[in-house]
Simulated scan of single mutants.
Amino acid sequence: MSIERIQPGKRMSMAVSHNGVVYTAGQVAKANAGKSVTEQTTEILGLIDGLLAEAGTDKSKLLSATIFLSDMSTFQEMNEVWDSWVSPDNAPARATVEAKLAAPKYTVEIMVIAAK
């Protein structure tokens, strides 16, 4: 069975597809780093849409999502964006945890797993 690496780099690939399943790396805001949780979440979900499309799938086929917040007090703010993005009737299994992220400018990181 083949493994497809999407946007591969020296350290990691942005996504990997194998056996009909797509795994994304944790995505952080690039253009909106340091901005609000709403802006970062919106950008991240757009990045995920792009990776899923490149892998031949979409958010309606999400299996699971893991969301990392630098401050759990922003949970509701992130959820407002998530709720407007997630495919109706196709919500994945999901975990949200508070974690210290790679740099203080990042307040949200999201990774997903989707079927093809």
Rank of each mutant, 00 (worst) to 15 (best):
M1L: 10
E4P: 00
E4L: 14
E4N: 14
G9Q: 08
G9L: 08
K10G: 03
R11I: 08
M12N: 05
M12F: 15
A15I: 00
V16M: 14
G20F: 04
G20N: 13
V22Q: 09
T24C: 02
A25G: 06
G26M: 06
V28P: 00
V28M: 06
K30V: 14
A31M: 01
A33G: 03
S36C: 04
V37E: 02
E39D: 13
I44N: 03
I44V: 15
I44T: 06
I44H: 01
L45A: 08
G46R: 09
D49A: 15
G50H: 08
G50I: 07
G50C: 12
L52K: 12
L52S: 01
E54F: 01
A55V: 07
G56W: 04
T57N: 06
T57C: 02
D58Q: 11
K59I: 07
K61Y: 08
L63I: 15
L63W: 01
A65Q: 13
S73A: 08
T74P: 02
F75D: 15
E80K: 13
E80R: 09
E80A: 09
W82H: 01
S87D: 07
D89W: 11
N90R: 12
N90F: 09
A99M: 08
A99S: 13
A99K: 07
A102G: 11
P104V: 01
P104Q: 11
Y106V: 07
Y106D: 05
T107K: 15
V108R: 01
E109V: 04
E109H: 09
E109C: 15
M111W: 06
A114F: 04
A114R: 10
